[in-house]
């Protein structure tokens, strides 16, 4: 029997709490599938708990964040509510500021890779671009 570390205990608590969120997400996702999408291209919305952290992705028509414009090409990803800087490559693959040199197939895969890389660390809020 291993002793629960504080972080692990917090992670378990977060997972339990966010399980509800994941349930809601499933409903949202189903609805998205049932209804015809506005855009035929582009990834679907997701909302799940991955390794104890809530990851969300959704189309974003508001320009995303602090003037970086549509680098996520109209799509935004959050980890525990904090936006992950996302970018779409010309071939349709995705990268983030956490994994900037390794394209992955979907924003969800990028969000999961970022969670693994973060090892529990929090994202630093996106800074405004340099003048």
């Amino acid at each position: 029997m291993t002793t629960l570390t504080r972080r692990r205990a917090l992670g378990v608590a977060a997972s339990a709490a966010a399980g509800l969120a994941a349930g809601r997400a499933l409903t949202t996702s189903d609805r998205a599938v049932a209804a015809p999408a506005h855009r035929s291209t582009g990834p679907d919305t997701f909302d799940e708990v991955y390794q104890g952290r809530r990851i969300q992705g959704a189309p974003s028509h508001t320009g995303g964040h602090h003037g970086h414009g549509a680098h996520g090409d109209g799509y935004a990803v959050r980890i525990d509510g904090e936006e992950l800087h996302l970018m779409r490559n010309a071939d349709g693959t995705w990268i983030s500021v956490i994994n900037h040199y390794e394209p992955l197939a979907t924003p969800r895969a990028v969000a999961r890779a970022a969670v693994r890389e973060l090892q529990g660390a929090t994202l630093v809020p996106l800074a405004p671009p340099l003048a």
């Binding site: 490559n89 040199y101 390794e102 394209p103």
Partner: peptide, 25 residues
């Protein structure tokens, strides 16, 4: 640069890992 083909420069960033895999490499 490595976005296409065998992948040279990008792959080395990924191989090192840590901050080298991020925009703040």
């Amino acid at each position: 640069e490595g976005w296409r083909g065998a992948n040279l420069h990008n792959r080395v960033h990924v191989w090192v890992g840590g901050q080298m895999g991020t925009g703040a490499s």
